[in-house]
Write a protein that binds this DNA or RNA. Sequence first.
DNA 1: CTGAAAGCGCTTACAG
DNA 2: CTGAAAGCGCTTACAG
Lengths: 340, 340
Amino acid sequence: MKPKNTSSGLKEVARYSGVSIATVSRVINADPKVKAETALAVQKAIKTLGYRPNRVAQRLRATTARRRLVGLLIPDIQNPYYVDIIRGVEHYAYNQNATVIIGNFSQDPKKEELYIDILRSESVDGFIVATTPRTEKKVELLIEEGIPVVCIDRGLRSLKADVVKTDNEAGAFMATEHLIRLGHKRIAHIAGDKEIPTTHERIAGYRAAFKKYHLKTEEGLIFSRKSDYESGVQLTEEILALKCRPTAIFTANNLLTLGSYEVLHRHKMKIPEEIAIIGFDDVYWANSLNPALTAVKQFGYEMGQQAAELLYKRLSHPQAPPASLIIKPELMIRKSCGES
Amino acid sequence: MKPKNTSSGLKEVARYSGVSIATVSRVINADPKVKAETALAVQKAIKTLGYRPNRVAQRLRATTARRRLVGLLIPDIQNPYYVDIIRGVEHYAYNQNATVIIGNFSQDPKKEELYIDILRSESVDGFIVATTPRTEKKVELLIEEGIPVVCIDRGLRSLKADVVKTDNEAGAFMATEHLIRLGHKRIAHIAGDKEIPTTHERIAGYRAAFKKYHLKTEEGLIFSRKSDYESGVQLTEEILALKCRPTAIFTANNLLTLGSYEVLHRHKMKIPEEIAIIGFDDVYWANSLNPALTAVKQFGYEMGQQAAELLYKRLSHPQAPPASLIIKPELMIRKSCGES
DNA sequence: CTGAAAGCGCTTACAG
DNA sequence: CTGAAAGCGCTTACAG
């Protein structure tokens, strides 16, 4: 019934190597004050006994920055963009011998709040969060309590935390400009949920491109519902039902893009001849779509790494002023807008 | 410098409500022996102080089954099938007030071993693992030590653990039979990595369908490299280069399918007229592909839930004999094989 | 350079 | 029904 206690514990290592548990602890933490030969003996004992420190006990005792646990709050693990971020954070953490604990709240506000509390109770070194305006207060509370937080994808309005995000306006501008240069004048924009700040930044980029080319932007061509697949489907249907159809669509994220593709195919629209499409967010299987998707690539993986790095920097410099890392996206030209 | 200690701790709650910390602890754990009015008073104190138990301390002290942490070992978080599994596990855990800690080893053997050790050091209640034969020994060790393990997607050869998996042979049979009934006789199979047991089960299903229809299976049409996107690309190229091309392809997982689509589109093959394609694994954007993908759906989300449930059952019945849950997949008929 | 001891925030027999 | 005390497995001043 009771599990054999194989993970011997500090005591056994101490006994085996003839020192105190304090010393064993010191060699585990690479304390340079330990005499070399003592350290060696202890290391041997650790190896032969197969000892592994209990991370829970370490964390309970440890002071911040040595807990080796980072909390990552993610809106939707089904969205490949967030998966990239997760992988990036994880990669950095792995190299620091840290673990990451993910709170995937699936766009559910209740879960979102709860996960903040839970991760906090897990004594994370700090948080990396893709905030929703909804929980902004709660996140600010964390910061006031001295818990390091870095925002990813979206910053805090109060700007009190580090942030790494994409230059959304620039990305949307690039996409729209690409279409304009190809001769499109009536471009629909399927925007994301207006609750989310990035949505507005992308709309701004869309408008800016029109402005630069002295084109007027038709307000009726900006569509928005939520940021999910289903909204992509519904809004594309609305667009196709327009008496005077636009010649191109710019979708604001990968879920919307996918939803849009579904409808375009169902209506047997020729892409890009009858309608061109360009999406925000690149995916690794963009070439498996037909035609291959031209998209604005956000560097999710790199952003995740940077965020983790920022977090650990802040751990050692809690008083440093908040930093912003704005990553320029890149246009991946493939086939869905025609040859450029 | 030092974070304000807002999360008051048992002591403050005890002081505030005029009882001992033992009593506070009891009401947190819903011990029925506590007098109702005492409990009420304590609950009020907890609420007004905004107290939240420190999960790390709880876990250190707790005995198995009350640690509320499940370890999930996943081969590749970029694969949507595993994302479904993660979501399922998480859903169940959430309802148990448990957290799940994910070890995503990205198909890297070294990471795989390391994550087992790390999750173990985190004192998980138990593991849910998609094993690789590589780490089978290590997983068996876990079991011998009395740590509950449930395998997902793939079982243990020794059968010593609970397992929830798809009926792979049946799934592959369904896919192949579907193609045969549509009149295809020469069907290529892009199988997964031969190191992985599911690969062989799917090949067996493929063969079985041929047998049932008294067709001979051409060994030269079974292709295998690894289980990733790139292999899908390469093997499809090989297939198209064949002097005598098959009329259909059956791909063994979603990554291979996507790779295959890329090549088929690049070569401007008409699907399904020139070549039909059917894939193992369904994805939520199957309709965004062109043509919409006909696929064998594995119930990843449900499997994840079941696995978590099995894990918690085993926690209360450690001696129960290992259970196997074999889930029947379902054929999702769309357009990539033509109308049925 | 090393050990004895206190303590991280909890839970749980053991008394009463 | 409740409290005092031991202890989970570590780390870290404090002595020496």
